[in-house]
Design a protein around this nucleic acid. Structure first.
Lengths: 364, 364
DNA sequence: GCAACATTTGAATGCGTATTCATAAATGGA
DNA sequence: TCCATTTATGAATACGCATTCAAATGTTGC
C-alpha cells in the first residue's frame, strides 16, 4: 500500500463525471482570433517583460476584456513549472499568535502576487499527509508552523526543488531550514525580569512537551534562574495543554495539589496560556496580580495589551520573522539551490506591562 | 486597460527564467515503465473508481512508492477541469469570529480532500482583485466572508461555472447566493434580553456602516425595542471601527461627549466590540457590569466565555452555517446548475452569561 | 542607402495527466 | 462448450498555455 493513494479524494458523483461547463471557457485562442493575432501573442500580452509591441499588447488586452478572458494559471503552471502558490501548514489557530503569523504571511505573499494554500494539522501531529497534498499541487514553497515533519517528506520536497521553511520550530536531526525566535534567550529575559522584580520562587506552565519552542523557552528561563543562584527546588513545572483552557485548569489543579506552594512568579510559556493562568489565579483563587503573583508571557499577542491582562511578555518580531522565512524560501530565485540547515534566530524583546512590577529603571 | 493584466505578478529574475529543477520530475510514464504497464494504467491506479485490476493497481502503487511518485494535480486539473481547490476570501482576521469561520471551513474541506486558497481583503474593500486571481486558478468554488462583490465578478464566476457563496453578508441587487445568521432576529433576541432585565435606555455600538450584517443586527434590535414601547430617543447609536480598539475608543468618546447620558444597556454589534466596550467602561470609567451597565454581544466567540468577560451574547451556529454554505456550493455535483439568489438564514441563540442579569427563569 | 543589429511575430511543440476508443481478456449463462 | 457481456488495457489525443526557433520587421550607424 502506498500512502500516496490514500489521501481522501473527493469522489465525483458518477452521474456528473463531466465537469460543469456552462459555456466553453474562453481561451487565449479565442482572444487571438478576436484580436487578429496568434495565440503566442496573447500569451505574451499577459506575460510581463516579454517581447511584444505595446500597441499590439493593448489591442489584445482590449479583446481579452471584451471576452472576459482570464488566463488559466493552471495551464500556465504546467509549462512554467511555477504555480505562484505557497503552502502554509498551520497548527493551532486557537492561539492568536498563529493567527497573526497567518495574517502576516498572507499580507506579504498576496502583495507579491502569490497565492496561499492553507492547511491545518492537529497540534503535534505529523504533517506528512499535508505535505503529500502540497506536493501534488506543485507549490513553490512550504511554510510549516506546527507539527512534526519526517525526514522522508523533507527530502521529497527538496528532491522536487520545493523549499521548506520551519517557522518557530526546528526538527532535531532534520536538515530543513527554519526561522525562530530566540526562545531560550526570551526565556532568559523573562527570568531576569522576575528576578529584577524580586521574585524568589517560580513556576512555568509548559505546553506541548514535544514542542521544541516550549522546551527552549523553559530551558532558557530555568538556566538563567539557576545562574542567578535560585535553587532548582524553587522552580516548579506545571504541565498543561497549550491553550487558554489548558493553562487555566493546570494552574487550578496544581494549586489544589499543593495550596501552600504558591510561587512568586509564573511564566506562561506563551501569552494565551499566561492569560488562562491569570484568569484562574484571579477569578478562582482570588489572587491579585502582580501583588500576590507575578505573571510573564511570551509572544505579545494583541490580547496581551488589553486591559484585563496588561501582560508583561516577550515580544516575538513576527514581521521580521516572516520576512526571514520568505527570504529562506527565495521564491524569486528558484534557480538558486535550496540551502538546507539554516537556523535563523531572531531575538525577542521584553515588553513591560502590568503583570510584573517594573524595577526603578524599566528596561535598564 | 484591462484589469486582468494589472495583477501584481511575481516577475521572475530574468537570470533564472528556467525553473528550479533539481532532478527531472518523475511522471506517470516513469512509474509505468517501472511497473511494466501503460501510462493510462498509472493514471487509473490513482483514480478511485476507475477500471483497473486490483492486482495491477497494487503493483503500480508499489512502483510509485519506489520512485516517490506523487501525481501532479496541476496537470490533472487541466484535463478534468476540477482543481479541488476552494477559495476563501476573508476580511477581518482581527475578529476571532472569522478565525473560527476559517477554521471550520478548513476542517470541513480538508476532510473532503479539498484544498483551501486563502485571500484577505481590506474590510469593506471590494474583492474584485481577489476574485480575478481566483478565476485564474480555476477554483471549484468561492466563499466570500467580507468585502463587496461587484455584479460583474459574480457573473464572471457564474459564467465559468464557479459557484460563489456569501458568508454572513448579502449584497443588495446581487444574485449571489449566501448563508447568514438571522442577524435581525438576533438583534431582537438581544433587545428582549435587555428588556427582560429591566433596561430602559439603550445604546448600540455599530461597526462598519456599509456592512449589512451590522445594519441588520442594529435594525432588529431597534425594531424590537420600538415595538416594546421604547422611545426612539432612548436608543443611541455609537459609531466606531468594528474592532476591539474601535469600540473601546468610541465608547470613551461618546461618554466624554455626554457624560450624563449613560444608557442602561449597550449592545455591541459583535463580541469583539462588546469586549472593547466592557473594558473601556470598567477600566476607564470605573463602571460595574452589569450593575451599572448591561452589555450584550453577538457571535459567541471563545473569548466571550472567558472570565473577564462572561459575555451574554447571541450565538452564531458557525458549523451549521458552514455546512449550509458548502451545500450551496454543491462541490460534489458540479454538473448541477448554480442556483442564484439563495438566501439561507440560520437562527442565532441567546447565550446567557454574566453581562445581563438573568431574569427569574432564564431563557423562558 | 545599406549593412549590422535589435525587436516582433507566428508555427510548432511540450508540460503531465485523464479519457476516449478500439481491442483484448475474462466472465457468465445456456 | 461457445457466444454474449462485462471488465481491463494501451495508444492516441486533448487540456490551455509558454517557449523555442526561424522568419520578418524595425532601427541604428555610417
Amino acid at each position: 500500500m502506498s500512502e500516496t493513494a490514500d489521501l481522501p479524494l473527493p469522489v465525483p458523483d458518477p452521474a456528473s463525471a463531466s465537469a460543469r461547463r456552462v459555456q466553453s471557457r474562453t481561451t487565449s485562442f479565442d482572444v487571438a482570433a478576436l484580436a487578429g493575432v496568434s495565440q503566442s501573442a496573447v500569451s505574451r500580452a499577459f506575460t510581463p517583460g516579454s517581447s511584444i509591441a505595446p500597441a499590439k499588447r493593448q489591442r489584445i488586452l482590449e479583446a481579452a476584456r471584451k471576452l472576459n478572458y482570464v488566463p488559466n494559471s493552471i495551464a500556465s503552471s504546467l509549462t512554467t513549472k511555477r504555480t505562484n502558490i505557497v503552502a502554509l501548514i498551520l497548527g493551532n489557530l486557537a492561539n492568536p499568535f498563529y493567527v497573526e503569523v497567518l495574517r502576516t504571511f498572507i499580507d506579504r505573499l498576496q502583495a507579491q502576487g502569490r497565492q496561499i494554500l492553507t492547511f491545518t494539522v492537529e497540534n503535534g501531529a505529523d504533517s506528512d499527509e499535508a505535505i503529500l497534498r502540497v506536493l501534488r499541487y506543485q507549490v513553490d514553497g512550504v511554510v510549516l508552523t506546527s507539527a512534526q515533519l519526517s525526514t522522508r517528506m523533507t527530502s521529497m520536497c527538496h528532491d522536487r526543488g520545493i523549499p521548506i521553511v520551519l517557522f518557530n520550530r526546528y526538527i532535531p536531526g532534520s536538515d530543513a531550514s527554519g526561522v525562530r525566535c530566540d526562545n531560550a534567550g526570551g526565556g532568559r529575559l523573562m527570568a531576569e525580569a522576575f528576578l529584577a522584580a524580586g521574585a524568589r520562587s517560580f513556576a512555568m506552565i509548559k505546553g506541548d512537551p514535544k514542542g521544541t519552542t516550549s522546551q527552549d523557552r523553559a530551558r532558557g528561563f530555568t538556566e538563567r534562574l539557576l545562574e542567578a543562584g535560585v535553587a532548582r527546588s524553587a522552580i516548579r513545572e506545571i504541565e498543561g495543554a497549550s491553550t487558554y483552557d489548558g493553562a487555566f485548569s493546570a494552574v487550578l489543579a496544581a494549586y489544589r495539589r499543593e495550596p501552600d506552594r504558591l510561587p512568586d512568579a509564573i511564566f506562561g510559556i506563551n501569552d494565551i496560556m499566561a492569560m488562562g493562568a491569570m484568569d484562574a489565579l484571579r477569578q478562582r483563587m482570588g489572587l491579585k496580580i502582580p501583588q500576590d503573583v507575578m505573571i510573564g508571557g511570551f509572544d505579545d499577542i494583541p490580547e496581551s495589551r488589553r486591559h484585563p491582562y496588561q501582560l508583561t511578555t516577550v515580544r516575538q518580531p513576527v514581521e521580521r520573522m516572516v520576512d526571514e522565512a520568505l527570504a529562506i524560501l527565495h521564491l524569486d530565485e528558484p534557480a538558486l539551490p535550496i540551502e538546507p540547515g539554516i537556523d535563523r534566530q531572531v531575538p525577542g524583546r521584553l515588553v513591560w506591562r502590568g503583570t510584573i512590577p517594573a524595577p526603578a529603571l524599566p528596561g535598564a
